[in-house]
Each structure stands twice: as C-alpha cells, then as structure tokens.
Design a protein around this nucleic acid. Structure first.
Lengths: 203, 203
DNA sequence: CAGAAGATAGTAATTGATTACTATCTTACT
DNA sequence: AGTAAGATAGTAATCAATTACTATCTTCTG
C-alpha cells in the first residue's frame, strides 16, 4: 500500500489547495490556520513551508485553481450552446454547479473580496471576475444584436445582475447554512433574470 | 471646549459602534482588533472592556445598530409608498442609500455570514435578513394579487433576487473598491429586476 | 549495476509578534 | 468622598514562520 508520505512538491501543492477549498466549506476562511490545513493533510505545519514561501502563496494557489476551474467550465458551457440566451443559461448553471460541488468557493471568494489592501490572491479574484464580466457583456451584446434580448438593454447592469443572481442564491445559502439547496433554486432564479433581459415575449 | 474624555457608558458604546462601522469601510472586519477600535476612538484598548464584556458583545452591538437602522429606513419607505412596485423601489433605494452612507455595512454583514458556527451577532444578521425576506414576500404577494406583478411569480425566487440585485452591486463595488458608484448603478439595476417580476407591459 | 552523494520532503520544537482580555492604579465628575 | 471611566501594564493563548535534524527519493560514478 502506498503510504504516500513524501510526495513531489507539485502533488503536495495540489493537495494543499484541495484541503483549503474543503476547509472553506466548513468554516470562515479568515479562521483557517496553517496548522489546520496541515492537520487536514496529515502533515506537520512546518512541512507546508517547504512548498509555499508563506500563507499568502497558499491563498494565491487556491484562487488560481478556482479561476482555472471556473473559467474552464464556463468556456465549455459557452462552446456547447447555440443562442446567446442558451449560453447565458448554460453559464449560469455551470457556475451554480461548480459552487454546489465545492461549497467552500463562495466563502473563499467573498473572503478575498473583503480585503481592502489587495494581496496577490485578491487581485486574482478581481481579474477573474473582470474577465467573467467581459465574457458576459459580449454575450449580452450579441443577444441584443440578434434580437433575442431587449434592444434597449443596459449591458453593464445586466452583467452585474447576472452575478447578483448568483450572489442572491449564495447569500441565501449562507443564511440557511445549506449550499445544496442552491441547485433547486437556480432554475427559478435564472427564469426571473431571463424575464428581465429578454425581448418582448408572447406567453 | 468639551474635551469629552469621560463619557457615560451609553454614549461610549454608541461611539464604539460608530468607530467599528467606520473601520469596516476601510478594512476587512476580521482584521479589526480591539486595539484599532480603541485607537480610532482616542481611548486605550483596555477602556473598551469597561463597557463591553468581550469583543463578541461589540459585534453584537454593531449588528443591532445596523438592524435597527435598516429596518427603520425600510419601514419608512414602505409607509411612504402607494403601490407594491413603488414600495419595492423605495425599499431598494433605501437599502442602497444606507449602504452608500455607511460603506462598511456590506463588509460587516458578509463578514458575519462567513461564520459557520453562529455567534450572537451572526444570529442577529440572519434574523434581520429573515425579517427582510418576509417583508419582501408580503409585498410581492400583494403585487401579484393586485395585478401589478405577474400572476405566476415565484415569490421566494423574487425575494432572493431582490437581495441578489443589491448583492450584485455590492460585489461590483468591492471589486472596484468604490462604494459610491453603487448609487449611480442602482436605478438601472432595479429596472432590470422590475422587468423580471412585472406583469406584461405595453412599452 | 551498486552505492555513495546530493536533492527533496517531512518532523518536532521553538520564536517573535499579535491579540483578546485583565488587574491595578489614576483621574474626573457629581 | 465615592464612583464611574480611563490609563497603564501586564497575561495567556494563538499563529505564521523558522530552525535543526531526519527520512526518502534520485542521480551520477566507478
């Protein structure tokens, strides 16, 4: 049996990220200590510093992982969809799916956004959200052009509202302490958002 | 000139709350120490414990203050409005107004919602948001009855989306680091929300 | 191909800084 | 004078980071 002490640094880093994401599903990121991370990994606290120069670098690695995961999923969703509206819905559900699979993610991102003096990790979050918005804006624009969305749509507001729709569900789940219910509420939430941006309907 | 050292405990408590709310506008609540609060108040750190039994009690006082302020404003907005839709808009703008006047408030509330083991302050936040939702649900219900809102409206989803609309603006401001721009974006955001819930329009 | 030599990863213990909280002395107000 | 509020000077606990040492893997040489 592979007792798997002694891992290559690369793998150990990945396990560290996993552990942190996991821990964020259970507690306030601000209260996560290097000791608690190490404990979760069955390693001593000092061992972490063989792979990271400091705690900051751990957060950075975590945010990098999240950014990659989210963006990969979003692009996949975009690729599979036909119309702008269908793309938006696929992105929405992909985002929600990622959150329900990794309940620590919202807490992680909100935790990073709290910092007013941006660390490296904070900058990563901000740039990810900025890219996210750009992606959204492009699709929304496309939707207005093809007539699927209201011609007078405020693109910026619609992008903010998209993220807000997710946020509403997230806040709801933080209050209820139950991340999984997000999945059930997601379709209804998107329907409401869709009605706000869609061109005049017949129903 | 009133050098105002030596204040009655009641006033000192109020100043403490003010100081904390102020500090939250500038930094992560999790990083606010009793020392930094005291410094802001021009008092020594130990003096705080003449008025609060512990840091928890400070957070509790802060959240109590916020809950009172928010609810007072919301009720005023409700009282002044005629139709359900006008009431919702007034509530929205009241909420946004409170946030722009006190930029620390979103960070404060989000910070509290991060805790998974609810403290007294956390419970206060949750119960405030619960009351908020109930209030919203009642108004939304009223709107469907009087025909101003879609008859098939999902009340729960619409309440979540209302809070989400605010959250979208908040997240936006945390990314941009500029709370004031919320005020400009608010009308556009509410318009989008309104279109999602309103009964078939003519425009 | 064996095995020494070096590199990499992990441990256990410690350090210095920070933090919430407290004990004791001092001042100011009534 | 007596008491409520504040200053001063602590304490114990926590935490990130470091250090000295050990275990394991990898590589190079004879």
């Amino acid at each position: 049996m592979a007792r798997t002490r002694h891992l290559p640094s690369q793998e150990r880093k990945e396990l560290t990220v996993r552990a942190v994401v996991e821990l964020c599903g259970e507690q306030d990121p601000a209260r996560i200590t290097t000791a608690s991370i190490a404990e979760r990994m069955k390693v001593t606290q000092g061992a972490l510093f063989r792979h990271f120069t400091g705690k900051d670098e751990i957060w950075q690695a975590v945010m990098k992982w999240i950014a990659e995961q989210v963006m990969r999923r979003l692009e996949k969703a975009v690729a599979r969809s036909e119309t702008p509206l269908a793309t938006l819905e696929a992105m929405f559900m992909a985002h929600i799916g990622f959150i329900t699979e990794h309940p620590g993610v919202p807490r992680l991102m909100l935790g990073q956004l709290q910092h007013s003096e941006p660390t490296s990790a904070t900058r990563l979050v901000r740039s990810m959200l900025a890219r996210y918005r750009e992606r959204l804006a492009a699709i929304l624009e496309e939707g207005t052009v093809c007539g699927e969305l209201r011609a007078d749509l405020d693109i910026e507001a619609a992008a903010t509202q998209f993220i807000g729709t997710v946020q509403g569900l997230v806040v709801q789940s933080l209050i209820a302490g139950d991340v999984q219910r997000i999945a059930e509420q997601a379709p209804g939430a998107f329907l409401l958002y869709r009605r706000g941006i869609q061109a005049g309907e017949a129903s």
